[in-house]
Amino acid sequence: MADDKRVDELGKAVKEALDKGEADRVVGLKVDSDGSVRPYLWVKGDDVSALVISPKYPLSTVYRLVHEKHPDMKLGIVARGCDERALVELSKRGNIKLDEIVLIGIACNSDEAQECVCHVPYPTKISAGDKVEGVDTDELLEKIKGMSLEERGEFWSYYFGKCMKCYGCRNSCPLCTCKDCKLEQELFVTPGELPPEYPMFHLLRAFHTVGRCIGCGECEAACPMGIPLTKLYKLLRDDVKEMFGYEAGMDPEAEIPLLTDLTVNPIESGEGGA
């Protein structure tokens, strides 16, 4: 099976990185005897036969947490395309240093790419798996785009009305690292309400994904109510790309557009509202 091959390749790469001392620890996934899969810090001498690649977890967050506590540690990470892009954005915000990461890349297969509707289902360095084409067609997104203003309002108010305010979307987001979260400010979101005040909570969070969201889908995966958050954030990602030519996580050198002046990131297109 193709997947077994990928896991084998990855296991070898992880073992090699640890054995050669390129990395002291590697953030990855491990399966336990009951079949449950968890983030794990691989260390030299571990039996990598329990290493697995799915379901995917926000591993960049684990990397960040361990790195914060042990900044001098040579830390590796098993990274899919989205994990790498998250690391790129984290480094731009000073959370981690890109050149210190021992990146062990894994390419997603076409099923995975399809499931995530991933545009770039591979990292820049690949140690396991083969690059497959990115996916551009998104049925639900096209459907939403085709709706009238009123239909869109109905669509989102239904989903936002289901929200149980678990903050899972925020908690699982690799790029949500603010110490003080706007969602917790009484001025903007009335505390204790269910569903959270429509649509402040969700618009606020959506706006805060601008220039950050790398489309990993962890928010939607963590949503108990199945709110199609990735669709909304994708629409904004497309806007940011159109207006500023910026794609989060793609180019480590590109500056975050909302934090620069117009001389660095001029508005490339789209009406400015003026």
Partner: peptide, 9 residues
């Protein structure tokens, strides 16, 4: 403004 438009406002 784009965001408002996306959610039907």
């Amino acid at each position: 403004r784009k965001l408002l438009d996306h959610v039907g406002i």
